[in-house]
Computed example of a mutant assay.
Amino acid sequence: MSSDGTRGTKPELKLGSHLVPGLAAVALFAVMALVFLTSSFPLAEARGFPEGASITASIGYAMFNIGQGDVNAEGFLVAFLVIAVALDIAIDGAIFLAKRGEEGVLEPLRTDGGTDGRRNGGDD
């Protein structure tokens, strides 16, 4: 309480179980920072792709088992196919939701603030 008898407006820290996820995130960050800062990255072993190599073409050759290409792309092939399937599922879901909305199962969005003009004598 202040000198005039009123309560202060300072924020108070509320302790409880809702702090656990935040503390877990801070602990995970500390562990990851410790691992990153204490690990060594040998630059002598760093390798890249050959100059002018086409990874896209190599993935295409690996998909059809042609055996050409500048890069061994079998490791990329699994990631490429997983991403392709995930995108296909997302597109199918979007189309399903769009068609469901057209058939009247989902209420279509209204641009007039949610009022139905047909009930009020409107012609839309």
Rank of each mutant, 00 (worst) to 15 (best):
Q68R: 13
G52D: 11
V35F: 14
V35D: 09
A79S: 09
I55F: 05
F49M: 03
F80C: 00
P50E: 04
E45P: 03
V35M: 15
M63K: 13
G67L: 04
Q68V: 00
A44P: 07
I55N: 04
Y61Q: 09
S40N: 02
Y61W: 04
A73K: 15
G60E: 05
F76N: 04
A44N: 11
Q68A: 14
A62H: 04
V35R: 12
L34Q: 15
V35A: 10
A79I: 06
G52A: 02
V71K: 12
G75Y: 07
A46Y: 05
A53V: 01
G52F: 01
L43R: 15
A62F: 02
L34F: 15
L77W: 07
F49L: 06
G67D: 11
F64S: 07
A79H: 13
N72D: 11
N72L: 06
G67I: 00
F29H: 15
S40F: 04
G60R: 13
S54F: 03
A62M: 04
L34S: 14
G69E: 08
F76S: 06
S58V: 00
L37K: 10
I55E: 06
G67N: 10
F36N: 13
L77S: 06
I66M: 14
D70I: 00
Y61I: 00
Q68W: 14
T38R: 13
T56W: 07
T56P: 06
A73S: 09
F80A: 04
F36G: 14
L37S: 13
E45H: 11
V31M: 11
A57C: 02
L34Y: 12
A62G: 02
G60Q: 14
V78Y: 14
A44K: 12
A46E: 07
A33Q: 15
A53I: 01
F76A: 06
M63F: 04
M32L: 15
A30K: 15
F80R: 06
Q68T: 06
S54Y: 07
E51V: 00
G60N: 08
N65D: 15
S54K: 03
I66Q: 13
D70A: 09
A44E: 09
F29C: 13
S40C: 07
F76K: 13
G48V: 00
E45T: 05
G75H: 09
A73Y: 13
V71C: 02
G52T: 00
N72W: 10
E74A: 12
E74M: 04
E51G: 01
R47P: 00
M32Y: 11
S40T: 05
Q68L: 15
G48M: 03
Q68C: 05
G69M: 12
E45R: 06
F36S: 14
E74V: 00
A30C: 07
F76R: 03
